[in-house]
Design a protein around this nucleic acid. Structure first.
Lengths: 217, 217
DNA sequence: GCAATAATTTAGTTTAGGCTAAAAATATAT
DNA sequence: ATATATTTTTAGCCTAAACTAAATTATTGC
């Protein structure tokens, strides 16, 4: 399986809401920053390999085999992200590019040993669940910070928007993974909230609260 | 720089005895398990990029820039080998294939942080020196076990022959990296030697002693 | 229901990195 | 010193994965 094939499977996986969902050629092209004609070629190839189901002009969806393959790539990506952040001092916004490369390394032993070495983490540094070796993904219990009421508390577990800008902004605010956040009050005027973390208080905008995931405690 | 280009630079580096040495097209082809005609094409390409010096029918040698590039790939390869053995429980004979993939990951931060995480190791699990970030390689003080006289001691630091068969044989003998070996006696008849390690004694053949590196203590 | 528009596929190129077969240059042996 | 053998290069093809431009199919507006 080539690097390019793996990236297509991953893109189709991320673009489908459920297993029946057909993903359009254009949507894949946009996600992969390539042209629709290139997508058509690759979809045909993956179809011959029985990794996607494809009928002309009707988009593509993963077969069960294709889904398993995609999920395994995602498993590798997320485990490497944990490694980079926990062991090599990478920050949230630095991991993605490198994990995109590492996810294609082929070695079952490598990934299983890495999993053990990292203590079988269940989520990556953005709060996304890490599939197990059989391709099972446990639904995450994370909710957006914006959904908490005054007085409620949560542990920061990830972000919805993982753009470099947002991640760097969080670093600047001093909010990072694992921080306990308590909603002190909500401002009806602009939906901003006042939160406490450690001994600090800070005001976060509605936009920020809508892009930060927490797990209630 | 592509994966293939990096592999050619590495091959040329490993085949040269010194910086002036010209490496023949056939030698590169054999080392890379490819055809001479493919080598010619690639050498031309690397020559245009000023990474190798090339004149038709005269073989190739690395420029200083090419040498630095090759040494950096080797640095990455060896650091990853240390990681695999020390952190992920890989054995000597399992690391090479995976390190061949990992050595091509592109990220300066990754490799510098890995170096720190591993405590700036100076040799890899085969006893080969790890170049520093500037491409300097310190000459190793390792000697073959076969050169020790009766009564001398050494720490096992690597192997000359890193074939799977030999590495697995060493595992079976119970000899691994870092073990202290003491030469109890040498047998003139077949050049085998009796060595002590821990509380065990074992007889090693001349062939084995000629493929095992130690650092005298 | 049909024209206009949008999405998708096809056909034909391109580039990287291989390959084979033949030609050219170099090395060797008598 | 010349014929033979070896090494290296050239020329021409192949495949993967991209691209552009043109053709085809779907969708939408009226």
């Amino acid at each position: 399986m080539t690097l390019s094939e793996e990236n297509y499977l991953k893109a189709i996986y991320h673009l489908s809401r459920d297993a029946q969902d057909e993903v359009s050629t254009n949507a894949i092209a946009e996600a992969m920053e390539t042209k629709a004609s290139s997508v058509t070629d690759m979809i045909k190839k993956l179809s011959e390999k029985k990794l996607v189901k494809y009928k002309r002009y009707q988009g593509a969806k993963l077969t069960e085999e294709g889904r398993l393959y995609a999920v395994n790539v995602i498993r590798k990506h997320r485990l490497w992200e944990v490694f980079l952040v926990e062991k090599l001092n990478f920050s949230w916004d630095e991991v993605h590019e490198v994990a995109e490369q590492l996810e294609h390394i082929k070695s079952d032993k490598l990934i299983e040993e890495l999993d053990v070495f990292l203590d079988n983490p269940s989520v990556d540094p953005h709060g996304d669940p890490i599939p197990d070796r059989h391709g099972n993904i446990q639904p995450s219990s994370k909710v957006l910070l914006a959904t908490l009421r005054a007085g409620e508390q949560g542990v920061c577990v990830g972000v919805r928007n993982s753009s470099r800008e947002f991640l760097q902004y969080l670093d600047k605010l001093g909010i990072s993974l694992g921080d306990e956040l308590k909603v002190l009050s909500r401002e009806p005027f602009d939906n901003s909230m006042l939160i406490g973390t450690g001994d600090r208080k800070l005001s976060v905008s509605s936009l920020t609260a809508n892009n930060l995931y927490v797990k209630k405690i």
